[in-house]
Write a protein that binds this DNA or RNA. Structure first.
Lengths: 114, 114
DNA sequence: TGCATATATAAGAATATACTTATATACTAA
DNA sequence: TTAGTATATAAGTATATTCTTATATATGCA
């Protein structure tokens, strides 16, 4: 049950990534599954390049991983990351973001990724 | 045992504050007690104004509180903050910073705050 | 009162961050 | 092959961040 400690530099880097509302919401959206870029664009109401740039930071730091499926690239949490415990802890303390995906689904806007 | 959820904006703000090595180390140093500004200056090897500015950010966001005692101002974690659970979780995942204070004590540099 | 110490604040500079628009790349399907 | 869709990258800009140096404030003590 003992968690491995994360060195301070690495912890600070991850916390800095999570310390941005857009990226924190993204991580929240990934809590229960995958999302593709177009879904983030819809939910977060931001430009596609901006979303891609945030995802790149998360990926470069190993917080998320990607999986291509046809034209789409699906992102998911990288639970194998040695800093995942930070992400996990934070996810327990913030509200679920799932409802935003549900809304999207209700509007029929999630079809692009089926 | 159920923790109250922290809204995403507020969580992101706190995580941003913790996402800086200097401030994260400060929080780590406060885990087991108070520290005064001159101790932070010694341990972190940074200028006094820089330390004060970091402490101000932490204080403005309610993460730490201050207590004046003579010429010295002692900082401590604000365990009453509604975002303290984030700080608490992070503290469990990073190494103890106490040894740095011990070193200081060994060098006799902690006398200023007795 | 006057000086020393501890801390805070102000102003400015260098750098980092997060957008924007434009364009490149990868895949699908006609 | 060509057009269309999804995503990534590049370049530029506005703003935020974190230092620095100089100065202000608060306390203690002779």
């Amino acid at each position: 049950m003992e968690k491995t400690l994360i060195e301070i530099d690495k912890a600070a880097a991850v916390l800095k990534l999570l310390g941005d509302k857009t990226r924190l919401t993204m991580i929240g959206l990934l809590k229960d599954g995958e999302c593709c870029v177009c879904e983030f664009v819809e939910v977060l109401q931001m430009s596609q390049p901006s979303i891609s740039q945030h995802l790149r930071k998360l990926r470069d730091n190993g917080l998320v991983k990607e999986r291509r499926s046809g034209q789409w690239i699906f992102y998911s949490l990288n639970r194998e990351s040695d800093t995942f415990s930070i992400v996990e802890s934070v996810l327990e303390l913030i509200p679920e973001q799932m409802d935003k995906l549900k809304e999207l689904e209700n509007k029929g806007l999630r079809i692009c990724c089926d």
